[in-house]
């Protein structure tokens, strides 16, 4: 294809964009809005995944030992726990250590603990981490069966709930986004249809003098792609600003909430949205060319 031909296509496409100003604006806005919502969903899901993943890696099984156990028996139990498949590490926490931790948590109300100093009500325990979070349940069950282990607890439930939430949001988000993308394609194809209609004379002449089908189609496809591109550009701008602001405010006010760092995420999201934007634009115009341009 000649360079001058591409110049011709681009000039024609730009001309159409301007000629259909209002309709083009509507299409660009729809693309922008759709991608804004899509982008927000993606960021939300990324972050929920991140939070869930962080919590998940912290999930551990706490195994409390029988208080009547002889001293030194915990060494035997430690060995048995290590032999359970899927266990990453297990740490023994003695009564005394447990109390010290409690002191740290109580801060300046140490007086509350002073009264129990002599008769420590806490028990020895093991803190066990799993290699893979989904094994936690099985490992907990195994440990519970060991002799000398009185009680087993883990925070799996919270993580599971979080994962369920993420999954629902993902499905709902996907449904909303698919609908919005369909609406976008429809609007773009409508815009292109108007362009085709406005230029039917030109198209007729092009056909008469022997322009190939693709020669006739390209300017319209480019127009669709431009609509998609402009819309994506707007949405990316807004998403970038929003997410930097969001991440900053979370860092400063809720530092313990893990937020996905903006730079990487936004770079990926930008690439993804631009790819999708160009596709949606091209597809929207192809839909309308198939129906309205019998070349």
């Amino acid at each position: 294809m000649r360079i001058s031909t591409w110049e011709f296509y681009i000039r024609e496409a730009l001309l159409s964009l301007r000629r259909n100003g209002l309709m083009s604006l509507a299409s660009v806005s729809t693309v922008a809005l759709t991608f804004l919502i899509l982008g927000l969903f993606v960021l939300l899901v990324f972050n929920l995944d991140h939070v869930a993943g962080t919590l998940e890696s912290q999930v551990e099984v706490a195994a409390y030992l029988d208080p009547d156990l002889e001293d030194g028996a915990h060494l035997e139990i430690a060995k048995l726990i290590k032999e359970i498949p899927g266990v990453k590490e297990s740490v023994f926490v003695s009564q005394g250590e447990a109390l010290d931790r409690l002191r740290v948590q109580f801060g300046d109300r140490q007086d509350l603990l002073d009264s129990v100093e002599d008769m420590n009500p806490l028990r020895h325990s093991f803190e066990v981490k799993a290699k893979r979070p989904e094994d936690v349940k099985v490992i907990a069950a195994e440990i519970a069966r060991l002799e000398g282990v009185a009680d087993v607890k883990y925070r799996q439930e919270l993580v599971e709930r979080l994962f369920n939430l993420t999954r629902s949001i993902r499905i709902a988000g996907l449904a909303v986004v698919v609908l919005l993308i369909l609406a976008t394609i429809f609007l773009i194809s409508n815009t292109i249809r108007l362009t085709v209609f406005a230029r039917r004379k030109e198209i007729g002449i092009m056909k008469l003098v022997g322009a190939t089908d693709w020669f006739i189609r390209w300017p319209f496809i480019l127009e669709g792609i431009m609509l998609g591109f402009l819309g994506t550009l707007v949405s990316i701008q807004i998403l970038n600003r929003f997410y930097y602001w969001f991440a900053d405010s979370v860092y400063s006010s809720l530092p313990f909430v893990p937020v996905v760092s903006p730079a990487d995420t936004l770079r990926q999201l930008t690439l993804f949205l631009f790819g999708l934007g160009l596709l949606v634009g091209a597809f929207g115009s192809l839909v309308s060319l198939r129906r309205f341009l019998r070349v």
């Binding site: 004379k201 030109e202 056909k207 008469l208 003098v209 022997g210 190939t212």
Partner: peptide, 21 residues
Amino acid sequence: RRQLPFYRRGIGVVFQDFRLL
């Protein structure tokens, strides 16, 4: 269909209504 444009390049056409842009 693919050959049509190339066939049409061999024919010049003029109409009553000029059909200029």
